[in-house]
Design a protein around this nucleic acid. Structure first.
Lengths: 213, 213
DNA sequence: TAGATTGTTAATCGATTAACAATC
DNA sequence: TAGATTGTTAATCGATTAACAATC
């Protein structure tokens, strides 16, 4: 068993390459070079080739890459050659926004259930979805084969919701609550803290001001 | 002029340290060691000390760090010893969720205006805010000293909105639209692509399955 | 063949970690 | 003083880039 280690930054870039390739394809472009991809997404050509080299040889020397083929390969690498059922945990404002976010659908993510524990929210409709009680999670997770859950509940409820998902077979979690969650090692988890992102900006603004003194 | 280069990961961790310190402070803890911070946020003690060392000496050898002091220092480093006025561009579901997100307020971010170009949205209230026409942006940005803007509009409108902000003195942009924006070099810009985050998870699920073959 | 571009290796760059002198 | 923990240096680790042989 080879243990190839792929940098997470490479995976992020592959996402971006695949979007760029889709755009080229829509525009009828059939062949592209690493330099053109690099130019299009703002990295170096060597970076593009290196990122792809982790997974195979997809180009033709002297020619470049076939846009349609490379697009398919990158999507397959990312696991996007299949559809994924998501659970959105929390039907507050953020949960609502996530349920209606069109960016998920175009990449093959299908929201199979939205859950809340607030009785005033349960039963309400969000588009084609109906907000479900947390108690319905096990049944729906099983039926819909939900492997990925998104946490959009307040900090105080985040751990409880994570536990519920882990207990019911969820393998990966995207967590919007600003708290470090305790989950087994084998669960993939990533945090998105919106305020941290802003703080990188304020740091840089202040830092730049200090440098120019 | 020294050109100290601080890794972005260090800034992200400082955000997380500062939250952990606030929690300790609320719990009445007065002194903390790099090892305890490391334990609390899931990094190495050397990492904690190295991150802080970019900015000065904040501890006492043999003793540790004073929680209140270190909390203040980290907040100051991040630029959070002042309040920041934000503009939310786009009053769709995501814009609405951002306007009502309480995580911003506790870190000193104040939403000073929410803007949209859809006439059916203009004038609607979101909490204490009223959705403003894009044409009001210059006036309000100036009056409220808006230096940071958040883009929560569809891809098709993102560049236009970015241009408007840059023209009116915005220095930093948090972009939720899945498109690379063209802004002058001196503008700080970070993208948050919700789908890319999910794709890192699907990649890892697929990758792990492949490794265990 | 000449020109172009890939795939890959080696060099470089940068970030993390281990180790320890400084010092409370 | 003995014990503890910082601040910092040097070693290690990992990611990016430059360069070029392979080859279309």
């Amino acid at each position: 068993m080879k243990t190839l280690r792929v940098p997470e930054a490479t995976v992020t870039r592959l996402s971006i390459y695949s979007r760029f390739l889709e755009r080229l394809d829509r525009n009828g472009v059939t062949t592209v070079s690493s330099g053109e991809i690099a130019e299009g997404v703002g990295v170096s050509p060597a970076q593009v080739r290196k990122d792809l080299a982790y997974f195979g040889e997809f180009g033709t020397r002297g020619v470049g890459y076939n846009v349609k083929d490379l697009m398919k390969y990158t999507l397959k690498i990312l696991g996007l050659d299949q559809n994924w059922s998501l659970a959105i945990m929390g039907a507050g404002n953020l949960g609502f926004a996530l349920c209606t976010y069109r960016g998920f659908n175009v990449r093959g993510f299908n929201i199979a259930g939205v859950f809340d524990k607030d009785p005033t929210r349960i039963g309400k409709r969000i588009g084609k979805l109906e907000v479900q009680a947390l108690s319905k999670f096990p049944e729906i997770a099983e039926r819909e084969n939900i492997r990925i859950g998104v946490i959009a509940v307040p900090i105080s409820a985040a751990q409880e919701v994570a536990d519920l998902m882990v207990k019911n077979g969820v393998e990966a979690i995207l967590n919007f609550a600003a708290v470090a969650l305790n989950v087994p090692d084998e669960i993939e988890i990533r945090n998105v803290d919106l305020s941290v992102k802003l703080e990188i900006l304020t740091f840089n603004l202040g830092f730049r001001a200090a440098q120019s003194l």
